[in-house]
């Protein structure tokens, strides 16, 4: 009865996450990043995705998870957002699973803090718990605390 949708799954810090596949542009292997100095810490850097400039988010930081090993070679889950492609760094990409929204349960009480806004729900899979991420809120960073640029506003003349 209930319609199912494909979900892309990936592992991060020992947890299993899922994203609606329609929000995912592509999955790519590890790439060299260019750091962006002075950027919010959640921004891991910039990468070149076949000539497109893609901002890369450190999903561990975004989800308040502990930092990974220094020699990790994370993979990219590239999201299609209204502002262009946005990549999430993940430990390992899993398989695509068909899920129905009816299977979702609200996130358990143990999930607190920022992650709560980002997790749409959880889904019991055999042997593991799948956390479904909300692609829209993941891409929305809290406003940077930095003061606005002290540049003279190019007022209309």
């Amino acid at each position: 009865m209930d319609r199912t949708h494909p979900y892309t799954t990936f592992r991060l810090a020992g947890l299993l996450f899922g994203l609606r596949a329609s929000a995912v542009l592509e999955l790519t292997r590890h790439r060299e990043l260019t750091r962006v100095p002075l950027a919010p810490p959640t921004v891991a850097g910039l990468m070149n995705l076949r000539g497109r400039l893609v901002t890369v988010l450190d999903l561990r930081r975004r989800l308040d998870l502990p930092p990974g090993p220094a020699d990790a070679r994370p993979m990219h889950v590239v999201l299609n957002t209204p502002d262009g492609p946005l990549s999430l760094l993940v430990d390992e990409v899993g398989e695509v699973t068909e899920l129905s929204e009816a299977d979702f349960e609200p996130p358990p009480e143990s999930v607190r803090g920022v992650a709560r806004e980002l997790i749409l729900g959880v889904c019991q899979l055999p042997g593991s718990l799948l956390l479904i991420l909300n692609p829209a809120t993941v891409a929305n960073l809290p406003p940077p605390p930095a003061a606005p640029r002290p540049h003279p506003t190019p007022a209309r003349l």
Binding site: M47, N48, P143
Partner: peptide
Amino acid sequence: VKPLGRLLQGVPCFAGATILGDGRVAL
């Protein structure tokens, strides 16, 4: 010249980014 994404709009000191001949991104 490629504009920086929305998430990096507030970051000072950069006018954009470009992709260099070796494929790396430079600010």
